[in-house]
């Protein structure tokens, strides 16, 4: 279990994640009004970069990548990057290929991530 992310170590969090996966697999957030709402969308009428994530997760759990991409493309595009980041953080990959880590997750990459998130935020509301 040493390679598992710290945040997933407590069994309670793992259980929570499992319960959420079951809920989001069984129920489509678009069809039930009791799923949490985005406060930013509620206040401004504009989508935030995370808007559509709940429906996208529902689609992903049903292996409906096209639907997930329609709900929140940034989320779908981020998945390989996030998995790669976890791999570098929690395995010895970053010791074996430190230069790749620095290129993909170093300072320049992080600044690019911020720019992409903000550009996406603006563009999806135009």
């Amino acid at each position: 279990m040493r390679t598992l992310p710290q945040i997933f170590k407590p069994p309670l969090l793992l259980l929570l994640l499992l319960v959420l996966a079951v809920i989001y697999f069984a129920l489509d957030p678009a069809g039930f009004s009791f799923f949490p709402k985005c406060p930013f969308y509620w206040l401004t009428g504009y989508k935030c970069p995370g808007c559509g994530s709940q429906r996208a997760v529902h689609d992903l759990l049903h292996l409906n990548f096209r639907g997930a991409f329609h709900e929140n493309p940034l989320l779908v595009i981020s998945i390989p990057y996030i998995l790669g980041g976890f791999a570098f953080d929690y395995t010895n990959l970053s010791q074996r290929i430190p230069r790749v880590r620095k290129t993909l997750y170093g300072k320049t990459a992080i600044i690019l991530v911020v720019i992409i998130v903000i550009a996406y935020w603006i563009l999806r509301n135009i």
């Binding site: 957030p29 678009a30 039930f32 009791f34 709402k37 989508k47 709940q54």
Partner: peptide, 8 residues
């Protein structure tokens, strides 16, 4: 809840 904002 049907009158509430759509889910986002």
């Amino acid at each position: 809840f049907e009158n509430f904002t759509p889910n986002f």
